[in-house]
Nucleic acid binder design. Structure first.
Lengths: 151, 151
DNA sequence: ACCCACTTGTTCAAATTCGAACCAACGGCT
DNA sequence: AGCCGTTGGTTCGAATTTGAACAAGTGGGT
């Protein structure tokens, strides 16, 4: 059993800490600027990236990395806010697809610039060209490793 | 106002996703292997890294990146479990210091190896030497940027 | 056509999170 | 000594998260 080196431990902790702090910053900004939580924003973004701005609940839960029940809740909130609409799925009676409403698209266009600005300021600009490229590379490697977890 | 490039966005999302997934894995393992939540484990680790295995509540909240009230709750839980003990602070009547108990040390020694193993498998080993070094570098840069936030 | 194991999405209770309000207590200043 | 703006920690309520249990539906093999 190999132990973690000093450096490995520091990197691991730093990685999680950075993610936590960044998430917190995003959370605050979204809340005060648009009344959205980060998970909610995430849902909107993922929907906007999908064809026709709609996705089945399960798929949405996957890309947004939440539990099914968590998603049910958030979509409920978003629906109350008029940003998302539930439709039944044509190919599967049980299925539910969440779809961005016009309001949803509008809101997203309104919020995105401020969000991008914050990401740039606290994440992208904090790194040199080289550092960013390297981190990008590392994240890709992690993603590849983490995605195929269960088969 | 500069937009985020395709690659910047992917990196950002990948970064958060990786952190979320990793946290989830850690959470699961700790829960089933030791009945601890990740925040709780974090508290134990931070205490163990402090002189005498004790820290004032506020300092602990800082290093563990939680809200004060969140920490109050978790320390409460840990105290119930007998892993941590509250002592009053000699230099400040209001102060409270959380201290690892012998039980706490024991538990930590018991859990740490498995945790290290998991971190190694899903984080460290997922990256080449070079990738790891680069990511480590990037994380350091982020930490430096994020820490001095409020002065 | 019928099973039966798996999938879908929701509901439920329990645990956790956060921020705001709060009460002391501190400590520099006069 | 007395004031007063700040700090330390807890408490409170509201919002959110999770996994387990559930009802309904699907679909391949027989």
């Amino acid at each position: 059993m190999r132990w973690l080196s000093e450096r490995e431990l520091r990197t691991w902790q730093g990685f999680l800490t950075a993610a936590t702090v960044l998430t917190r910053l995003v959370e605050q900004q979204l809340k005060e600027e648009a009344g959205l939580s980060h998970p909610q924003y995430e849902v909107l973004v993922r929907l906007s990236a999908a064809p026709d701005g709609e996705l089945r609940m399960t798929e949405l839960a996957e890309v947004a990395v939440t539990s099914k029940s968590g998603l049910t809740y958030q979509v409920g909130q978003l629906e109350k806010a008029g940003l998302v609409r539930r439709k039944s799925c044509p190919s599967d009676v049980r299925g539910v697809v969440a779809a961005l409403t016009d309001e949803g698209w509008r809101k997203l266009r309104e919020v995105a610039p401020g969000h991008a600005e914050l990401v740039r300021r606290h994440f992208v600009d904090g790194l040199s060209e080289r550092q960013f490229a390297a981190l990008s590379d590392g994240v890709d490697a992690l993603a590849a490793r983490l995605a195929p977890q269960e088969p």
